[in-house]
Structure formats: structure tokens, C-alpha cells
Amino acid sequence: MAEYEPPPGSVPPDRVGRWQSRRGQDRLAQLLFLAPAVIYMLAFFGYPVVKNFLMALQTYSTSTFYTGEAPWAGLANYRAVITSSVFSKALLNTVLFTAGSILGQFVIGLGLAVFFRRRFPLNGLLRSLLLIPWLIPLIVSGAVWRWILDKDNGALNRFLAAIHLAPGHPGWLTSTSLALLAVIMVNIWIGIPFNLTILYGGLQDIPEDLYEAATLDGASGRQRFRYVTWPLLRPVVSVVLVLGVVYTIKVLDVILGLTNGGPANASQTIATQSYHLSFVQFDFGQGAALGNILIAISLVFAVIYLRANRRAVDE
């Protein structure tokens, strides 16, 4: 593509001309390298978003599929979803779910990453096996977790009762005060492999001699973490957190599989509510509007975070 060879017998161009064509060639090569990715991104992300955006401004029902008629609704869909009685609860749950999941995944993931920095037999194998939760289709892990968390016969309650920790058989999925906690727990479980992998990679990149120097200076384990590990890991941490939030905020299948947003909306989030509007009540306009609100929240978070991060790096 970029390998230009002058045809045999052609007159060599003069210096300036060659430089210009070379530079033009560079430009062209760069564009050709970039083009497939850009085209793909526009087709598979840009187009759906534009479509979703338009749909939120229309009254879009089951009939629309057959007749093609979707009357213009202006901002009515947005008004309807924001004033709905579930909205504030769903918003709060979304925040709690995201914050709780990220915190749990990150702390456990980091702890495990640090642990696996040690050299011990079977380290690599154990670390690989920890990624398994990620490989299990959610249909399956959702069903398994539902049995484990079952109030009467679930493995967790049987275990807790056996060690006399919670003999009362708490209703993990059926109590309004525990359901959100339960879905957060399962989501943490699913997210640990991602955090572990990336944080472990980040730790591997920290030069060994820095630790040795710190140890020579008499730094304790805690101090080494505080002054060596953490500052050097920061860039990786920021990636994990930003991607984590962005992925978590739109989590749908975990919640639908475990509690379906219940009981009594106790684990309903913006994502699940948007799904319910579109695919249970077939009000696609409102579903799209709520989906767009979700994207907007995510976007605002990312922008704020990136700004803050850039400032921190600049200072």
C-alpha cells in the first residue's frame, strides 16, 4: 500500500518534489491505517446512537414496526421517564450499584494482584483459573447464583446456618434491604477477573529495583505500597476505574437474571428500567430516552474524571 517504487526507467523526481510526495505518501498511509477502524466505529457505534437519539423523540410503539408510523413526541418521553415514580429510586440504585461494584471489584482485584506478585508454586495456574468466572455465560452463572442465594435451600444460607452466623436464613434476593447488596456481590464476583488481570499487569511493570531501594531505606511493607506501588500504579488504576464505571453503569443481565429489578424495585437501575420500558411494556420511545440519559450520565462522569486526571498529571 505504502511501498511506492518508481517504475523502472522513470526520471527521478527532484529533491523538493520527492520530499513532498513522500510526505503526502505518509499522510495517505496514515489515513489508510486509520480508516478501517474509523469506519467500523462509525457504523457499529455512531449509527446506533443516532438512531436511539431520534427514537427517544418519537412515540414508538409495537404498531410502528408494522406501519412505520412514529409520531414526533418532542421531549415528552424524557419528561415521562424523569417524572415517573421509579426514576429517583432507579437513579439512586444505579449510583449505589456502580459505586459498590467498583469499590469491591477494585479492592479485591488489587489485593489479589498484589498477592500474586509473590513467587510461589502454581502461581500462574491459579491466576489463570481465577479468570473462569468471566468465561461462564451469564445465563448459567445467573442461574447458579440464584440457587446459591436462595433463601430456604441455597448453599450460602445452608453454610451460614451451619456456622451459626446467620441462622435466620436471610432472603438475599427477596428482601428489599438485601436484594441490591446481593446483585452488587454477584457483580463484584464477575468483575474481579478484569480488575485482577489489568492491575497485575500494571504491577509487573513496576521495576523491581525500586522496591529493593525502598527496602534498603528501611521502608515497611505498608510504606512501600504507599510510596512506590501506588504512585506508579496510578495510571493503570485510572484506566481500571474509568472503564469499570463505564461498564458497570450499563450492567443489565446480572440484575435481570437475579432479581429482575425486584423485589418491589429494590434493585431496579436506570439500565434495567430502560429495558423494561422497551421490551416488557413495548414503549420504545421512553426506553430510548432513559437509555440516552444513561449514556449522558456516563459521559459526564468520564469527562469530569478525565479533566481531573489531566490536571493531576499536569501538576
Binding site: Y60, A70, G257, Y275
Partner: peptide
């Protein structure tokens, strides 16, 4: 069962307008 049913209905519906 609920889990799969719910997952499964995360579905595609063609959200376009086609002429009658």
C-alpha cells in the same frame, strides 16, 4: 425460568421505520 427469560428478551427489535 426467570433468569434466562429475562436475559433472552434483551432482544433485538428492529427499531427502524419501514414503509407500509
Amino acid at each position: 425460568r426467570k433468569a434466562p427469560a429475562a436475559l433472552a428478551s434483551i432482544l433485538a427489535i428492529p427499531l427502524t421505520l419501514t414503509a407500509c
